[in-house]
Amino acid sequence: MTVLALAGVSRWYGNVVAVNDVSFEVGPGITGLLGPNGAGKTTLLHLMAGFLAPSAGTVDLDGTPTWRHPEVYRGIGFVPEREAFYPFLTARQFVEASARLSGVADPRAATERAIATVGLADAADRGMSGYSKGMRQRAKVAAALVHDPPTLILDEPFNGMDPRQRLSMMDLLRAMAADGRTILFSSHILEEVERLSDRVLVVVAGRLAAAGDFRRIRRLMTDRPHQFTLRSSDDRRLAVELMAAPDVESVELRDGRLTLRTADYGALTRGIASAARRAGVTLYELRPADESLESVFSYLVRR
């Protein structure tokens, strides 16, 4: 069980601040790092992986700073965003060299395992210069997990993958997280993060805008009304009843669908059942309408 901890981390280049006073901890499970292009995701990941010196603050992997401590790489697998590869190696040679460089006890067996894990066995003996982007990505992932690291850091791992490869990579990451690994990946595509992560970190303009389960993050955004859609035995009567409730901001009945907005998530979810009973209406369905990560994200980015 490993914990990657950032405390008060800032990083600036000259007078441009790329990461601004970020603190969080990443533990086992899948954590998604989300942010628009240029928000500082790569800078943050490189800080965590020890490829950049924090200008202020500390980055520790289980208590050891990652910057200038190459021995931490026994426990870290890193997949860079940049499509860098040795043009003179096949994928198998690349993964095996990575295994040997990490001092793996049985590099050949570890190589075969890693290549099989990413599903690259058929093409492993071809030169990587002839690979598609998705194949190179998988070779990079194989190299990153060949030494069986408890922590895996992936920068935009789904870039250039087709939908099928994307799904199998997601399955792979889920399986690895189920083994108790700490997995951190970045993406600017919401759907990926939403489908994969237990936890999100939202970075906007170098600052950590939110951290945690995105549904809970949503609930914390109290200055923005929550939206629900309801289905019931009699929508019109329910609407009338709800309009009288103090926390409800607006009620709308349109195209046979009842939508309501409230500023107080907790009060509404507690009170709606009794409101339905008072109106003598049976409640069939109560669904948060905008709990998608997209809405959370666009809210945080715009703020």
């Binding site: 992986a49 490829f51 190459p70 021995e71 931490v72 790489y73 026994r74 870290i76 697998g77 890193f78 860079p80 940049r82 499509e83 860098a84 590869f85 040795y86 690349f94 990575s98 460089l101 990490s102 001092g103 190299a143 990153a144």
Partner: peptide, 15 residues
């Protein structure tokens, strides 16, 4: 230049 240095730096090798 081509970014492959990361594959050496991300290994437990003394610099």
């Amino acid at each position: 230049d081509d970014g492959t240095i990361v594959y050496l730096l991300a290994r437990p090798l003394p610099r």
